[in-house]
């Protein structure tokens, strides 16, 4: 896990042009995720047209594909761990793409495809809305104040503590010491103590400024949805349901194959 990634996503914020409201993006991404996941485990190419959504918003938000790819690689092992057993236990054979293959491989392929479709969409959505936008949207949707404040604090202090941790670990390694289970307590402990005293300082500072449990101001603007937003949502939901109901690749392919031959 690379902590600087947390801040990297915010970089996209500055360069993006006029964009859709975070609320709209969150809603469409959620519907998209449900649409992808709702395909059954032996379906593969049928869900491919859904890739249009991440590609579309990705081009709008101008997110670097390499960053997304790197993040995906780090979490892929767990999905592979769960899915790789399918070929061994689901050995019913079937014809697929003209070759005989076991159903297990198809379901494994389907699982990986789902992963490849969903993860970029979520990451792009976050990159396009930014941490603040996401938190404010969540707050306007009724997320409790305690939790919203918690999100803001967490985001602010991760970097600080990450740097501190990095220094401690580096100091240890430079002296030739290894970090083992036995001395992990002696490394985490002081850091924990520093955190406790830091939180006290933060608390007093907050109290001095009249902190009443809320770190941000609510804007009315956040919940307003324009006609553009509405069209955006409706178009995508229509597209997702089309892909879900009809076998789009086969439909389009039939049309083309029929025309060519």
């Amino acid at each position: 896990m690379r902590l600087k990634d947390l801040y990297r996503t915010e970089i996209y914020d500055e360069s993006r042009g006029p964009f859709f409201s975070p609320l709209v993006l969150l809603a469409v991404t959620f519907v998209y995720t449900v649409a992808v996941v709702s395909f059954d485990r032996y379906q593969t190419f049928r869900m491919l047209p859904l890739a249009a959504y991440p590609i579309f918003i990705g081009s709008f938000a101008r997110v670097s594909g390499r960053d997304i790819f790197r993040k995906m690689l780090t979490v892929l092992p767990f999905v592979i761990f769960i899915g790789i057993w399918n070929p061994f236990f689901d050995t019913t054979r079937t014809e697929y793409l003209g070759i005989m293959i076991s159903m297990g491989w198809i379901s494994f392929f389907s699982l990986i495809l789902k992963f490849l479709l969903i993860v970029p969409a979520t990451l792009i959505m976050v990159a396009a809305t930014g941490f603040d936008g996401l938190c404010r949207t969540a707050a306007s949707l009724g997320l409790p104040d305690v939790l919203v404040t918690q999100f803001f604090l967490l985001q602010r202090y991760i970097r600080l503590l990450a740097e501190e941790t990095h220094n401690i670990v580096r100091a240890r390694v430079f002296r030739g010491g290894k970090i083992t289970v036995a001395n992990a307590g002696n490394i985490c402990g002081p850091l924990l103590l520093r955190c406790l005293s830091r939180s006290e300082r933060i608390h007093s500072a907050l109290m001095c400024r009249g902190f009443g449990g809320q770190l941000y101001h609510k804007h009315r603007r956040e919940n307003r949805i324009s006609v553009h937003d509405l069209i955006f949502v409706l178009t995508w939901v229509l597209f997702f349901s089309m892909v879900r109901i009809f076998d789009m690749p086969v439909l389009i392919g039939d049309l083309i194959v029929g025309c060519v031959f």
Binding site: M1, L153, L154, R156, T180, C188, L206
Partner: peptide, 24 residues
């Protein structure tokens, strides 16, 4: 509200402490 700051910092600590990977 006294523990609000503690919540935020400790959550960040859990994140940061995951950088301390010790060998088993």
């Amino acid at each position: 509200t006294g523990k609000t700051a503690l919540m935020g910092v400790l959550a960040a600590f859990v994140f940061a402490s995951q950088m301390i990977n010790f060998s088993i």
